[in-house]
Write a protein that binds this DNA or RNA. Structure first.
Lengths: 194, 194
DNA sequence: GTCTATATCGCGATAGAC
DNA sequence: GTCTATCGCGATATAGAC
């Protein structure tokens, strides 16, 4: 134990972010105080400022990290050949990824208005990049004549809204497994675009 | 003019609710102060308490009023005979009603966690009543063999999430009319369940 | 019914001891 | 790196004059 008692630089940072994530998701960014976060972690409020310049950065880092994780995980997926296979891969990925981190998803939708204008733009651009991946699939499928969608942009947003909605009701250990849920949603998506 | 100057009992109440609705939608319930609401209305903060016992009641009244409006408008609709016609009526009604009052819809989704437990239960029950209207349509359609849905409850939630998602991007005066949007979404809903 | 004034409290953030 | 103490501010809600 070379480390001085009371010094936890390498674990306190992550614990602060975990506490902030949980509290922001539960009560909302504006309703959570730095003192509450500090209490969760087991330090005094002042100590938080060794790890974040301010409360806003704490929120931004959570949202930015979430979007980076999303795009990284998406990029690591295999890329099937046909539009239908690509759409199924996207559908199952989206549901699975979002069900795995409900709190980060929740604050990423609910706390956008609490970002500064600069931070908001960064997150929105990342979200746009993700949505365009789905739109590309729909556009390719339409050009190849396998999908019949009236408007690729609207269909993109409709599908994402439907898929992300799973998070509002799904609880692991419930009536349906995650794989069953993916299959049900994939069935609806497939029928809606063909 | 029998009314005393400075006395506005019959209009100040509604103006307070309108200001609260707009500010809660824009900044979030927790981030809006009673002083801000009073400033919008043009009175001092203390005067608000002639119209609402506290800030929580202001939020609850907005959400309760919205749900009451929703169920009342839904009940006033004509009820077609076939499940497919009933589903189309529901789809177009849901989109139209929600696009007509984006701020009330927004806070009804975003501010649920800022309700007290008692108030939350009331709103959730009303929401459940509304959702069950759609589920009834899907169940009837399935029993009659005209709809093919894996799970009526999940399909209900998926459709509502998809339809309500219109509010995140639709702006009147944009590329598409409300009627065109309704038709595009109805096309997707119809295909997804048949 | 609205005003001014205030009680009471908690906020984000910082300073300086250890 | 964490602590205690504090600054400056703004919050909800109430009291009492007009």
């Amino acid at each position: 134990m070379a480390r001085t008692a009371g010094s936890h630089s390498d674990i306190t940072g992550p614990r602060i972010r975990e506490a902030a994530l949980r509290l922001f998701a539960q009560h909302g960014y504006a309703a959570v105080s730095m003192r509450q976060i500090a209490k969760e972690v087991g330090v005094q409020a002042g100590a938080l400022y060794n790890y974040t310049p301010d409360k806003q950065s704490l929120l931004f880092d959570l949202l930015k990290g979430h979007m980076d994780d999303l795009l990284t995980a998406r990029a690591a997926l295999k890329k099937p050949d046909t539009p239908e296979d690509r759409l199924e891969t996207f559908t199952r990925f989206h549901i699975g990824f979002h069900l795995d981190r409900p709190e980060a998803v929740f604050i990423s939708y609910m706390e956008l208005r609490n970002l500064t204008a600069e931070n908001f733009k960064i997150i929105e651009d990342l979200r746009g990049a993700y949505e365009s991946e789905l739109e590309d699939i729909l556009r390719d499928g339409r050009e190849q004549g396998v999908f019949h969608v009236a408007d690729t942009k609207i269909t993109t947003l409709a599908i994402i809204a439907m898929l992300t909605g799973v998070n509002t009701w799904y609880r692991s250990g419930g009536r349906l497994s995650q794989e069953e849920v993916e299959t049900i949603y994939w069935d609806m998506v497939r029928k809606a675009v063909t």
